[in-house]
Structure formats: C-alpha cells, structure tokens
Write a protein that binds this DNA or RNA. Structure first.
Lengths: 229, 229
DNA sequence: CGCAACATGACAGAGGCATGACAGCGCCGT
DNA sequence: ACGGCGCTGTCATGCCTCTGTCATGTTGCG
C-alpha cells in the first residue's frame, strides 16, 4: 500500500528534511549517502521510486542511474534526479535520458512530493503485472498481448515495448534519444532516425482501428502519446 | 517588478544581515521583530513573501504562520521558515500549517536568496516542470502544448520558445539582441529584424483568442509580455 | 513634415519528418 | 544444413512545415 522511496543524497540535512516530508506524506523511506549504500538498500528491499542526487561522492548520480537501468531488477523503477542548476537540466534532458523526472534545487518539499506523486501515478496501472489501459487500447502484460477495443492486435516486439512505454508515460513529449534509452535500452547504438521508422510501424498497426493519432509528432522535439487530439 | 519581502525575526543581527542581502538582490525589504510588528507591517503594505523565524517572543512563528494562513488577505502569501538545527520534528508541524519551505540556521545568504526566488517563481505559476500559466494562456511543458482558455493552440517551435520565454519573464522589456540570446541561443547569427517577424507570427496565432495585446512593442527598446494593457 | 522604427506580406531555401524499399539476422521446421 | 519467415536497422526520396530575409506599407515622434 505505502509506496517505498529511496533517497540517495550525501548531504544529511537535505536527506533528513526530505525523509520527514515523505513520511508525512505516507511513504516508506529508505536512505543512502552514496552509491554503494544505495545498492545495498535496493538489494535489501526494492523501492517503488528512487530519488537520486546529481552529485554523489565516488560515482555521479547519472552513472548510478545508468547502472540501475541496466539491472533488470531495477530497470522499471522510476528515478527522479535532484540537480543543482537549471541550465544543466536542458542538456541533461536531451542527452542523458533514462530518468523519469528532474527537480531543481532548491526545491520545496511540497513541490517534491507533488512530482513524486505524479511519477508514481504515471506508473500506475502497471500494478506489477505490466498491464495498462488507455485511450481505447489495452495491454495485457502477463499475456504479452495488445487489444484495441475487443480485438487483439498483431504487433512486433519493439513496437510492443514502444507502445507500452508510451502508455505508461502518456501526455508527455520524449525525444528520440530518450525513447532509445527507455525502449531500446541504453547500451545499444542505433540511429535516431530508426525511431521514426518504428513510430511509423506502430501507427500502421493502429491504423485499422483509427487509433493512429494517439501517437503524435512534435516537430523539433520528438513524439508524444496522447488521448486528446 | 521588485518583490517585497517581510522579515520577522527577533535577533537584530540576523535581521540586518538578511535585509542587506535581499536589498542587494533587488528586493524591497520590511522588517519586524515580533508577531505584533509583523501584522502591522503586513497591514501597512502586503508583502510578496514572508520570512518567518521559528522562535519569536510572545508567539511562535508557527502560530503566526497559522494565523496568516487563516486571514484571507495573507492566505496566498508564501512563507519560508527559518529554523534552528535540531528542530526537525517541528518541520512536520510546519508542513501542516502550510509553510512553503524551510531554511535551516545557520544558512548562507546565497542559499536563502535562491530559496526565496524558487518560492516566488512557483507562486507565479512556475512549478519547476516548465509549465506556466499567465494572462489566459497556459503552457504544458512536459507535453509541449499551449492552451488559450481551454482550447489548444497550434504553434511552431520558435514561437513556442519565444512565448515560453515571455511567460517566464513577463512584465519586462527585452531588446531584440536579448531575445535572440535567450530564445535562439547565443551562437547563431540572425538579423535582429527577424525577431519582429516572429513577434508578428506569435501575435497572429494569439489573435483568434483576443490575446495578441499580451505581446507589446516598446518603441526604441524592444518587446514586452504583459497582462496589463 | 520628414525620419526612424516598426508592421506586414511574400518568398525561396533549409531542414525535419513520413514513407517505402531493402538487406542482414536469428529462428524455426524440414 | 538448408531455406523460408518475421523482425530490425538503415537508407533514399519526396513532401511539407518552418524560417530568415527582403520589399513595402504604416505608425510614432521630434
């Protein structure tokens, strides 16, 4: 019931303040001061969400984020990064993806909690089974099947992962780089234009059901899954 | 333009130090040594933000915060509390009272000002997600969408960036050179007159909604986004 | 009135994206 | 082992939107 959140942050005062705020918001909190402690904490009890400081002793938060993404046990756990500067954020946002959201320091606890809840809500419907339903589409996670209305859709593996990611991250634009990170996995080298092709293939399979406009192009930015035109 | 900040703090040395730092950061400062003086100062000229010390003679800062929240005239004014180390349990109470943020003593003026700016920014509708709402317009940052009233607006990439910059920097005149720097990015060579054209295009997309007068010309200086005609 | 600053419309070029084709690859049954 | 077969990544092409610039009309100001 209560969501479990892991805070990875070296500065004790921030860590404590955030921990108090989260407990107040009915969340279970685990703390870690560095990457090593974080991995131990994760092995101990896997969290539902990870708060990751940008600057950590030894290993940067970004490196840790990558390692977590590569580990199948933590690949699906959403990550929110705490960054120091607003300027770095844009660059980070474009280049280094694999993170679900950013919060820029200094932040108020109120704002942080709002963002955490937003991310957890987004992952909702993915109640462990990996099933989602949205905009006339339904994904049956365990059965690895997709339905439009009542009828089943034939869909390839990559399009399946792409659609699943979109449905669990709707109403939000993702760059091609971000999609490559989330859908293909960070450790492959693939042309960004390849994303276009799979978007095309996904649209094509949705077309017979009139659902191809769920996948929308945002010129100059990327793609977006949205239930509103 | 200049934000008005009220400091409620009984220790004169801290009060003066903070006041000095705030004035240097282009803010108007009012001071009060206790709760009674604070209420007089607020009645005199309502501030945009209140800095509240935890320990006050007569009435604790927390009580005062509750009273301010209860009064409709001050309910919307953000509050930042100054707490001493080791009062963490009290933070929880502060959250209940609707305090917006905390700064733990001892603090650097730099950090304090950063927090103040963050809270003020949020009070203006910027919650850190890149979304803004102002003058009948709303930008959904993550979804990369613009709404006028309730309906969505079709807008090009450059006009989007231009509008976003304006909405996050309203009520202030920017020269064409400044707009080129902020919206186009510093490393491009573009005629200054090009700005005029994009201003024109932005106005044109706002025209159907009667919002074109949000973008105002300041002859001899540049352009300004303002909610007041 | 005359000048400078700005508004407006038109236009050609650039660049982003959609689309269809194709070759490599792994998988499977024969 | 061999030959289909489905899937994937890349490329070439064409379309279409956006963009910067110019020419011309309009406005404000001394």
């Amino acid at each position: 019931m209560h969501k479990r959140v892991l805070i990875v942050e070296d500065e004790a005062s921030i860590r404590d303040m955030v921990a108090f705020a989260l407990r107040k918001a009915d969340m279970d909190v685990a703390q870690a001061a560095d990457a090593r402690a974080a991995e131990i904490a994760i092995a101990d009890a896997p969290p539902d969400l990870i708060l990751l400081d940008w600057m950590l002793p030894g290993m940067t938060g970004l490196e840790l984020a990558r390692r977590l993404r590569h580990d199948p046990r933590t690949a699906e756990v959403p990550i929110i990064m705490l960054t120091a500067r607003g300027e770095e954020m844009d660059r980070v946002n474009g280049l280094e993806a694999g993170v679900d959201d950013y919060v820029v320091k200094p932040f108020s606890t109120r704002e942080l909690i709002a963002r955490i809840k937003a991310v957890l809500r987004r992952a909702q419907g993915d109640d462990g089974t990996g099933s989602v339903e949205l905009g006339g589409l339904r994904i049956d996670g365990p059965a690895h099947r997709v339905f439009a209305g009542g009828t089943q859709i034939e869909i390839g593996p990559t399009e399946y992962r792409l659609l699943h990611f979109f449905m669990t991250h709707a109403e939000r634009v993702y760059t091609r780089a971000q999609l490559l990170d989330h859908v293909w996995g960070g450790s492959v080298y693939v042309e960004e234009r390849t994303v276009d092709v799979h978007i095309r293939r996904l649209r094509k399979t949705l077309e017979p059901f009139g659902l191809e406009n769920l996948v929308q192009t945002v010129r100059g930015s990327g793609y977006r899954f949205s239930t509103s035109a």
